[in-house]
Computed example of a mutant assay.
Amino acid sequence: MPYVMPVVIGIVYALLMSLIREPHRRRFNALMVGGAGAAYLSGGALGGWEFAFTAVATYAAYRGLESWTWIGVAWLLHTVWDIVHHLKGQPIIPFLHDSSFGCAICDPVIALWCLRGGLPPRAWLRGPVAARQPAA
């Protein structure tokens, strides 16, 4: 179950975000990953590195305002930070020991969705090329 639920959460996230129309969907997701990039700041487990990571994540999120690829990159960066925090024993949710581990599984699911252009479910079945062509 600790492996399945994070995947389900990532899929549900993509489904819910797909309800937002473009270009607002991309911009909203850039804001979401920007917030995720600062999630570990209050714990301070890695000292000054927390600020350095937040700066890098914020840059990627900013670039994500105009690019799904950068949003995907930002989620993958957050995945790496989740793994570091899990190994250090400083989870994202202090009272849930494996929360960073779960986040490290969930985030790549979201990243894959973003790297595919943040397409709505209907477009998943048609593929990325069909989804980007205007309807006749």
Rank of each mutant, 00 (worst) to 15 (best):
A38K: 08
I11K: 05
A38P: 13
L19I: 02
L31C: 13
H85T: 00
W70I: 01
P2Q: 11
G47H: 09
A52V: 15
Y62W: 15
W49G: 08
T69W: 11
P108N: 04
V109F: 08
H86N: 08
G44S: 08
A14G: 07
W75C: 09
F53L: 09
F28G: 04
L15C: 11
Q90I: 04
A104N: 04
P120G: 05
L87R: 12
D82I: 01
L112S: 12
E50V: 08
V80H: 04
R63C: 09
P23F: 06
L76Q: 08
S67E: 04
K88G: 02
A136K: 11
H24G: 04
L115C: 11
T54N: 01
I105E: 09
G35K: 05
V12N: 06
L115Q: 12
P94A: 15
I83F: 07
W68F: 12
G127N: 05
A14R: 04
W70R: 00
V8R: 01
V73L: 11
G127A: 01
L15T: 10
V109I: 14
G10K: 10
C106S: 14
P121H: 01
M5G: 03
C106V: 03
L87F: 12
Y59V: 15
G34L: 03
C103I: 00
G37N: 13
V73G: 08
G89M: 11
A14Q: 03
A135T: 14
R21D: 13
V109D: 09
Y59H: 06
G89L: 10
V84Q: 12
M1W: 11
L41Q: 05
R126M: 03
T79Y: 08
A135M: 10
K88L: 13
A36F: 14
L41I: 12
W75P: 06
P91M: 08
R27G: 03
S99W: 13
A130D: 12
P6Q: 02
G43A: 05
Y40K: 02
G48S: 12
A57S: 15
V4T: 12
I92T: 11
F101W: 14
H78G: 13
R21L: 03
A14N: 07
S18T: 06
I83D: 09
G64F: 02
E66S: 15
T54A: 15
D82G: 12
D107V: 05
G10L: 02
V4D: 05
A39G: 14
I71N: 09
A111V: 07
C106I: 00
A123C: 10
V4Q: 03
I71R: 03
A30C: 10
A74K: 05
C106Y: 04
G127R: 02
L31D: 01
P108V: 07
M5A: 13
A55F: 09
G44P: 12
R25D: 03
I93N: 07
A36P: 05
G47V: 07
G89D: 12
N29M: 14
S100K: 09
A61W: 00
D98A: 11
L112M: 14
